[in-house]
Write a protein that binds this DNA or RNA. Structure first.
Length: 261
DNA sequence: ACCTCCCTGGCC
DNA sequence: GGCCAGGGAGGT
C-alpha cells in the first residue's frame, strides 16, 4: 500500500465513515491520494497521504484490513474498499461495525481522537516516572485509566486485565495509589502481555469477532491468566478468579495474586 | 470525570 | 427471543 495511489474508493456502509461529514466526503478526499506513510498510534491506524490529508482507521473490536486481488469475491461485512494503482484492493471488513475509516485534513486531525492519545504502549512506552506523573492525581481505578488511552495508548479490555494480573495490581486500585516501583512492574507486564499476544496472533474469543487479516483466528486465548476465567482457579495460586464491572467493562482479577485496592 | 449509546453474532 | 461483548465519542 505504501507509495500507492488510491484510484477508487467506496464506502459500503455509512456508519464506517461516521467521523466525516458524509461518506461522500471520505470518497472525495481519498480518491486519487497517494499513501506516503503508514503508521499506528495506540489502536488507531494512520495513513499519511499527499495533499495534506490523513486517512485514520480504527478496527474497533472486529475490524480487519485485507489486501486482495481485484475482483475477488467480497466477504460479508466489507464496509470500505479502495482500489490501488497496482490493481490490488484494500478492504475493510468489520462485522460489529465499531471500527471506522476517516479522512481528515490538518485541522481536523488535531481535534480527532488521535490527539487525545498518550504514548504508545508498544512503540514508545512511557517510563515509570512519566507514568507516575500522569497518574499521581488520579483517583479513578487503574483499570479505567488503562482503558482511557490517555496515560498510555494501545491496551484494550483483555490486555489491561492481563497486565494488571502479571504486575500483581488490583484493578480497582486508584491510579494515584501506585508508586514508581509498581508502575515499573506494570509497564514491564504490559510489554510482556503485548509481546505474547502479538506472537500468537492476538486473542480470538469464542465469538470469532477478532480475526487476523486473512480471516484466521489468533491463538492468544490459551495464554490468558484472568480474562474470561471468572469462577475458575487462578493459574498461579488457585484462588477463584473474580469478575467485577469497571466503566461498563468486564474486569477479571485474582484476589490472591492482586493485593486489595 | 462520568454515563450512554452504537451494532452484530454467538450463545443460553 | 434476549443477553452479552467491546472502543470511542458525545453529552451531561
Amino acid at each position: 500500500m505504501l507509495g500507492r495511489r488510491m484510484v477508487s474508493v467506496r464506502v459500503g456502509r455509512d456508519r464506517t465513515a461516521r467521523h466525516n461529514a458524509s461518506p461522500s466526503e471520505v470518497v472525495n478526499r481519498l480518491s486519487g491520494r497517494k499513501v506516503e506513510k503508514v503508521g499506528r498510534h495506540g489502536k488507531f491506524l494512520v495513513f499519511e497521504l499527499d495533499e495534506g490529508y490523513t486517512m485514520v482507521a480504527h478496527l474497533g473490536m472486529s475490524g480487519r484490513f485485507a489486501i486482495t486481488a481485484s475482483g475477488e469475491e467480497m466477504s460479508p461485512h466489507t464496509h470500505f474498499v479502495t482500489t490501488l494503482d497496482d490493481g490490488s484492493e484494500v478492504r475493510f471488513i468489520d462485522p460489529r461495525t465499531f471500527g471506522f475509516v476517516a479522512a481528515y485534513d490538518e485541522d481536523e486531525i488535531a481535534s480527532s481522537g488521535l490527539s487525545r492519545l498518550g504514548p504508545d504502549a508498544w512503540d514508545n512506552p512511557p517510563g515509570a516516572t512519566e507514568l507516575r506523573t500522569a497518574l499521581e492525581k488520579r483517583t479513578a481505578p487503574i483499570k479505567a485509566l488503562l482503558l482511557d488511552q490517555g496515560p498510555v495508548a494501545g491496551l484494550g479490555n483483555i490486555y489491561a486485565d492481563e497486565a494488571l494480573f502479571l504486575a500483581k495490581i488490583h484493578p480497582l486500585a486508584p491510579g494515584g495509589s501506585l508508586d514508581g516501583s509498581k508502575l515499573a512492574d506494570l509497564l514491564s507486564a504490559v510489554r510482556q502481555v503485548l509481546a505474547t499476544a502479538i506472537e500468537s496472533g492476538g486473542t480470538t474469543l469464542n465469538d470469532l469477532a477478532y480475526l487476523l487479516p486473512d480471516g484466521q483466528a489468533g491463538d492468544n486465548l490459551d495464554s490468558l491468566h484472568v480474562y474470561g476465567r471468572d469462577g475458575e482457579p487462578c493459574r498461579v495460586c488457585s484462588t477463584e478468579v473474580q469478575r467485577v464491572v469497571v466503566r461498563a467493562r468486564s474486569t477479571h482479577f485474582c484476589p490472591g495474586c492482586q493485593a486489595d485496592a
